[in-house]
Design a protein around this nucleic acid. Structure first.
Lengths: 377, 377
DNA sequence: CTGAAAGCGCTTACAG
DNA sequence: CTGAAAGCGCTTACAG
């Protein structure tokens, strides 16, 4: 014990000496943490000839309210720490201090473009605000979500953004987040219980699309709905009906087409879709992602129908390529950047709050017009 | 102190009693971790009337080589733990045990499809293998990468997959990963130093595309190259030249077109591209992502050139929508699933190894043929 | 088979 | 302004 400590101290000293001479070269070597030989706060304190309290204060600024240290000593300690290549042990720090600087987030690794846009913005915003984002990736697996929840709690992460609750098992997800002090959902969760969320205004944006189509004199619109019973799909269906009622235009529930797997973005699904709905002689289609749009145009053409002359198309997801298509596609833009801003604002504001109040926020979206709805735009 | 401990013990007991009666209801309430009142291993041990060692053994199976415990007692402890809603504190566990069950990964939040496909597979595979994936998300920021490296080291994560080294600053990234015992890059890093990597065989797959185009009698091929000096771009340029030499077909270096921002996937960039290369009268284009393909077809058409009659197109990124386009697009498939498998295999095998050997693995890709190259496919 | 004790690397009251 | 000491929640030799 004694011997080992001495040895380590000796090697530290040798190291310090060499550092002053061949600083760069040695630091590179040192970084390759020799097992169990990593530099700790104690090592730094010893090398600097101060107490661990002092080192802690100098390096991480903590040290309680009373611990103080002179500017000069502080700089000295910092220099030593850098020379030694000291890296704080995060586990020890968090175990000792319980500070809340990590925001957890769970998201599907194959999420839709909207979600990955939101995620990208959230990442940026949390970093700028000085928080760390710990991302739990999974795909369509309730067990994976559970294990992330356990992990987050095990790391004492109390603020968690959930972007993964739109599945067959969607109603099982929200309850898992009850143990957290500060959970926040992106899009309204599908449960009776109340949870804070920031959501695209699916209803409002869809309504804009409907009004636009009606203004173009389209009268037989097909809405290709996801078959998950998610709030977004339900909000859109509601907007579909509301719009018809408001305009006094009759419709058939069959115009809300529920595909087998949400997005009709394969040849098979789109073929099936068209077989089912073309007998209704639709003059407009509201569909999901970019691929669905590609298939729709291709297959409509192959059946002698032109876009937009015979059928208008509006996509429910904005994507960079929509304007490159021929014809360019009208799409709904859910404003991911604003959603991310609101989400980060809410969750960060909540962190110090004992029991955060309920937040239910809808972010307004817009329509990006392309050539897929009418000739002249 | 004494009083507080007693109080906590009392509430635990009350709790245990109520649990037996109203189990479900109470567990739900308990989960909402009352600040600082979270259930610890000691609480469980106390409630079960055993030592912390025994509890640790029963709940996490560790407990060194010698610590043993009877089956009956073990089950009892587990039951108590579950009733109390015990969740192990991961920080304490890792601090005490130093076990290596987390794999770190750094990736761009706006990475290309290939990378997000690989990521999705890696996530699945690491989970199946019993490891946890800790994902560091960032976008085009060397500082963010640095801070993730610090974090990982701070969490004593020694196995890290880097998918974020294709930037302006690409040669600055690999050195950051030297401190890790077990780093692995996806795609070959752009540094003189050797690092283990698993990479798509960009050269081989590109060569397949070239050979195919030559077999269709295309003679003036434009390769739209990313302007980052990344190994993939260079490997492709090499394949471009090799193919010409092998076939005895003359070419001009200007046929390797270096766009301003890598992907020519906007109206402006593609317009500029066409202005620059059309005077060469190309009969084939090898371009990046899906959007670039969309723009290429649209803009070529607007200049009176048809795909594939006048110009063949091959995309360098396979995407679900490529077959939905009109014409459907020939694309290179880099085999993300296999890349992920290799990466996970290598990194997991390395975990117990003291100084892992160098791995340099190239995964073969293939061509997915569409209508964009020639009439009859 | 079991438990008391040391230790992981930090932070932070507390006493000087 | 400074340092010795207790503690965060675990794991694991070690001694019974």
């Amino acid at each position: 014990m004694e011997a080992e400590g001495g040895e380590k101290f000796f090697s530290l000293m040798t190291h310090l000496l060499s550092v002053t001479i061949f600083q760069n070269a040695v630091i590179l070597n040192k970084n390759r943490s020799e097992d169990n030989n990593m530099i700790t706060l104690s090592d730094v304190a010893k090398a600097a000839g101060v107490s661990r309290s002092a080192a802690s204060k100098a390096l991480h600024g903590g040290g309680g309210k009373t611990t103080k240290i002179s500017e000069k000593k502080s700089l000295h300690i910092q220099k030593i720490a850098e020379q030694l290549g000291y890296r704080p042990n995060r586990m020890a720090q968090r175990l000792a201090s319980r500070k809340q600087d990590i925001i957890g987030l769970i998201v599907d690794s194959q999420c839709c473009r909207l979600y990955s846009d939101i995620l990208s913005c959230i990442e940026q915003l949390t970093r700028e605000a000085g928080y760390r984002l710990q991302v739990g990736l999974m795909h369509d697996s309730i067990d994976a979500i559970k294990s992330y929840v356990d992990d987050f709690l095990g790391y004492d992460i109390q603020s968690v953004i959930c972007m993964a609750h739109y599945y067959e098992f969607s109603e099982k997800v929200p309850p898992l987040f009850k143990p957290f002090k500060n959970p926040l959902f992106i899009s309204q969760p599908a449960t009776d219980e109340k949870f804070s969320f920031v959501s695209p205004d699916y209803h409002g944006t869809f309504r804009k699309a409907m009004d636009y189509l009606f203004s173009l004199n389209r009268r037989k619109i097909i809405y290709v709905k996801s078959n998950y019973r998610t709030p977004d799909a339900m909000a859109r269906a509601r907007a579909f009906r509301d719009a018809h009622l408001a305009h006094g235009i009759p419709f058939d529930e069959a115009q809300i087409y529920c595909g087998d797997i949400g997005e009709c973005d394969t040849l098979e699904l789109m073929t099936e879709l068209l077989d089912d709905v073309l007998p209704m002689r639709p003059d407009a289609l509201i569909i999901g992602n970019g691929n669905a749009t590609l298939w729709a145009i291709r297959l409509l053409n192959s059946r002698g129908l032109r876009v937009p002359e015979d059928v208008s198309i509006i996509g429910m997801e904005s994507w960079k390529g929509s304007q490159a298509m021929q014809p360019s596609i009208s799409v709904m833009d859910n404003n991911p950047a604003e959603i991310a801003r609101e989400a980060v604002r809410v969750i960060i504001n909540n962190i110090p709050v004992e029991s955060p109040p309920l937040h239910e926020i809808f972010v307004e979206g817009s329509l990006i017009l392309g050539e897929s709805c009418c000739h002249k735009v």
